[in-house]
C-alpha cells in the first residue's frame, strides 16, 4: 500500500517535472511566430484590420489579442493558414469568402480625381488628373481601400477571373461511402 502510494507519487513528480522542463526547454519564441504569421499576410499594410500594418496585426494574432479572421484581403485561405500554424481550430464556415477579389475601375464613371492613387498601398492604380484610372491586376492585393475613397463609386471589387493557366482541378466528390 505504502509502496504503491510512494511509487505513484514519485511517478507523478518525475513526470510533472519532466513536463515543466519540456515546456521551458522547448518554449517557442513568439517572435518567430510573429515573423511566420507576417510572412503569410498580404503585406500591403492596408490597415483594414485596425492595426498599424501587417506586422502589428501579426503580433496581435500571435499573442491572441486578435482573432486570425481580422484580415479581409487574406480571406479564408489566410485564416486557415494561420490556424494551422498556431494549431487553432477556427470555424471558417461563417466567413463569407468568394475567393480573392481585386479592384476594377468602371471607366464610364471614373472622373480621374487621383484620390484612389494616393490611397493604394501597393501603387497598383495608375492614372493622372482628368485621365481614366486603371488597376494593375497583378499588383492589386484586394484591400478595397480605394473603393471607400472613390467619390463617384467607380471602383468595384470583383473576383479574380479564373484563367486556363490558373484553373485548379476540383477535389473529387466522395462517393456514397466516405473514405479517407
Amino acid at each position: 500500500m505504502i509502496a504503491a502510494i510512494l511509487s505513484l507519487t514519485l511517478l507523478g513528480l518525475v513526470l510533472g517535472f519532466g513536463l515543466g522542463f519540456a515546456a521551458r526547454k522547448f518554449h517557442v519564441e513568439t517572435d518567430a511566430k510573429v515573423a511566420e504569421i507576417e510572412a503569410l499576410m498580404p503585406g500591403s499594410n492596408c490597415g483594414q484590420c485596425g492595426f498599424p500594418g501587417c506586422a502589428g496585426a501579426a503580433a496581435a494574432i500571435a499573442d491572441g489579442s486578435a482573432p486570425p479572421t481580422i484580415c479581409p484581403p487574406g480571406g479564408k485561405a489566410l485564416v486557415e493558414a494561420i490556424a494551422k500554424l498556431l494549431g487553432l481550430s477556427v470555424d471558417t464556415s461563417a466567413l463569407a469568402d468568394e475567393g480573392p477579389k481585386i479592384a476594377v475601375v468602371q471607366e464610364e464613371i471614373c472622373i480621374g480625381c487621383c484620390r484612389c492613387l494616393k490611397e493604394c498601398p501597393t501603387d497598383a492604380i495608375i492614372g493622372a488628373a482628368k485621365q481614366i484610372h486603371s488597376v494593375l491586376r497583378e499588383a492589386c492585393t484586394g484591400c478595397a481601400k480605394c473603393v471607400a475613397r472613390c467619390p463617384t463609386e467607380a471602383l468595384r471589387m470583383e473576383p479574380v477571373p479564373v484563367t486556363l493557366q490558373h484553373w485548379v482541378w476540383p477535389k473529387p466528390e466522395r462517393g456514397a461511402p466516405a473514405w479517407a
Binding site: L40, P42, G43, S44, C120, P121, T122, D123, A139
Partner: peptide, 16 residues
Amino acid sequence: RAQLRNEAAKRLAAAR
C-alpha cells in the same frame, strides 16, 4: 503563386 504574389505585394508596399 499566392506566395509569389504576397512577396511582390510586400515589395510594392515597401517601394511605396
